[in-house]
Design a protein around this nucleic acid. Sequence first.
DNA 1: GTATGTTTCAAACAAGCGTTTAGATTTAGG
DNA 2: CCTAAATCTAAACGCTTGTTTGAAACATAC
Lengths: 221, 221
Amino acid sequence: MPKVDSTKNKILDAAEELFAERGFAETSLRVITARAEVNLASVNYHFGSKKSLIQAVFERFMDSFTNHLMRQMTELEQSHQRFSVEQVLETLIKPLIEVDELRPDGSSVFMKLLGRAYSETQGHIRRFAMQKYSHVLARFTRMLHKAAPEVAPSEMFWRLHFMLGTFIFTLAGHEALQEISMSDFNEEVNVEQIIGRLVPFLAAGFSNQSIPIAAQSVGEV
Amino acid sequence: MPKVDSTKNKILDAAEELFAERGFAETSLRVITARAEVNLASVNYHFGSKKSLIQAVFERFMDSFTNHLMRQMTELEQSHQRFSVEQVLETLIKPLIEVDELRPDGSSVFMKLLGRAYSETQGHIRRFAMQKYSHVLARFTRMLHKAAPEVAPSEMFWRLHFMLGTFIFTLAGHEALQEISMSDFNEEVNVEQIIGRLVPFLAAGFSNQSIPIAAQSVGEV
DNA sequence: GTATGTTTCAAACAAGCGTTTAGATTTAGG
DNA sequence: CCTAAATCTAAACGCTTGTTTGAAACATAC
C-alpha cells in the first residue's frame, strides 16, 4: 500500500491525532475535516458514519502494531529456546515505539489513542479488539506461560491484565508524568526510558511467587 | 451533614451513576435530571454549569475516599513502628471498597468514575485532583519511602504512578474482566479478590531490586 | 398577612452535532 | 471524445446539546 494522500488517508490522519488529543465524543467531524482540509460530507461518503471512522482509525494503527508485535514474538521464539518473562514483555517495546515514530510529528499518538479506546464508549471498541486480535493475545499468553509455567492459568489471566492496564495507562498519560518528573527531579525522560523502568517492574510483579489465595497445580509446558 | 434528599443531592447521586456508566461527555443533563426526577434547569441553578457539576461529583466521592484513606494511614502508623510496602498498599483496600458500599445498589461506581476522570477531558480533572489532594499523595509517598527506603526518590515516583495506573485501570474495567474470568475459568471473583491479587503483584513490582538504569545505593529495610 | 428571598418549572434559545441531498467536478474505459 | 461511474462540494436537514428566561410556587420573617 503506497502512502498516498488520498482523502481517505487525510481524514484518518487528522482523526487519529484529534481523537488522541481530545477523545472521540469531544471531537466533531467538522474539526476533523477542517484539519484534513477536506469536505465535511466526505467522512460519511468514505466511512459511512462517525462510528465507523472511529473503528477505522483504531483498526489501522492496531493492525500495524500487532503486525510488529507478531514479528517480534516470532523472532524471540526462533532465537531462544527458553526465555524470561522480561524478554516476553520486551517484545512490546519496539512495536510500541515504532508505530509512533512513523507519525510526522512523532508525538506518541498511539498510546493516547489506546488509552481512549480502552475506557471510552462503554467498552465497545474494547470488545471489538478482544475479538479481532484475540489470536495475538493468545500467542502472547502462551509465551508468558512458557516463560513462567509456575503461574497458574487463572492467576496468569489476572496478572496479564494487570500488566496491560499498567502499560496502557502509564503510556497514555506519560506526558503529564514526564512534566512532573522534570519539575520535581530535573530528570528528562523519554518514552523508551519509561518503558525501561516499566518492564522490570511488571516482570517482578508477574513472576511473584507469593500467591494470595489457593495455589493451583504446578504443571509444565 | 445529614443525608437529605435535597435537589442538589438527588442530582449528584444520579450524575455519579450515569457518569460512571457512560462517561461525562456522553451523559446529557436531560438524562441526569430525568433520573434524579428534578427539573432540567435546576442543574444550572445549583451548580452553574455542567462542568461544575462534573467537578462537584468528582470532589464529593474523592473527599470521602481520601478521608478514609488518611484514617487508614494514621492507623497503620500508630499500630506499627515498621511496615511493609504491602501493608502500605493495603491501606487503599478498605477505603476503596467502603466508598462504594455506601451506594444503594452497591455497584462499584467509584472505580469506574475514577477511571473516567483520569482519562477524559484532556486530563483537566486529573490536574485538579493532583492539586487538591497533593497532601494525601505526599503522605502516601512518605509511607512508601519508609517501607522501602532503598528505592531512590525518582524511581519511587515512577513506580508509584505505575501502581496507581494499574489500580485505577484494573478496577475501572473490572466488570469486563470478571465476565471473561467467569466464562474462561468458571471462576467467580469479587472486587475484594481482585484487589487481593493486585496488591501482591504491585508490591512485588515496587520492591523489585533489579534497577534498570544506574543502580543507586542499596540500603536496608 | 404581606413582603422578601429562595427554589422550581415549562418553555424557549442559540449553537453544535452527525447525516443527507442534489448538483458540480473529476476520473477512467471503450 | 463521449459516457458512466466515482468523487467532491455547498447547503440544508432534523435533532440534541447546555444554558437562559420569566413567571409560578414555596419558604421564611416581620
